Simulated assay, not measured.
Amino acid sequence: MPQELYKAINPVDYLSYAETLISDDQTCCQRTAADRAYYAAFLFWRNKLATKYPELRSVTDAKVHKIVCEKLKIEIGSLANDLRILRDARNEATYNTDLIYLSDNGRACHINYMISAAKKLIGCSTNKL
């Protein structure tokens, strides 16, 4: 029997972790919180959508982000744009190591907005799928 490496995780736990991280004003905590907020919403919906679109389980490269957004738009409409906005903001926080200003390029979002948007995306799932 293979050795257990990581336990299963509920993607919503990433959102709780993001909320914990934002209480620390260190840059690495704020940027990690942005990353976790996005992945909470993305993984939540990827898993939920995979029940209707099982092919999502087999996509393991970066294309999965676009596919999830496309399927999510079919299921919940324009609210799916929030996931794309979160991804853009997450990419900015993760990959841009320079000082980031809110108005730099329209992609950066405040961490409180990101957490709120992730909660909204996760919360809207109650009657979907």
Rank of each mutant, 00 (worst) to 15 (best):
Y14T: 07
K73L: 04
L129Y: 11
K119P: 09
Y17E: 09
E19Q: 13
S16P: 00
G123N: 13
N112G: 06
V12F: 06
Y14M: 01
P54E: 04
D61C: 11
S116M: 03
K71G: 10
R36V: 05
Y17C: 09
E75Q: 00
R31Q: 10
A37M: 09
D35L: 11
I76P: 03
L56G: 09
K7T: 13
S23L: 05
I122L: 05
D25S: 08
P2I: 05
E70G: 14
N91C: 05
E19P: 09
D61L: 15
L72Q: 01
L102A: 11
S103I: 07
W45T: 07
P2N: 13
A62M: 03
Y38I: 06
C124P: 03
D24K: 10
I111V: 12
N91A: 01
T126Y: 13
A18C: 03
R107I: 01
V68R: 06
K7R: 14
R90C: 02
D61F: 13
L99C: 03
Q3F: 12
K128T: 01
A40W: 14
Y39K: 01
N47L: 07
E4Y: 08
K119S: 12
T32Y: 00
Y113V: 05
R107S: 08
E55T: 15
E4P: 13
Y17V: 06
I100D: 02
F42L: 01
L79M: 08
K52R: 07
D82E: 04
D13V: 12
M1V: 15
V12N: 04
W45P: 04
E92M: 04
E19I: 08
P11H: 11
K66P: 04
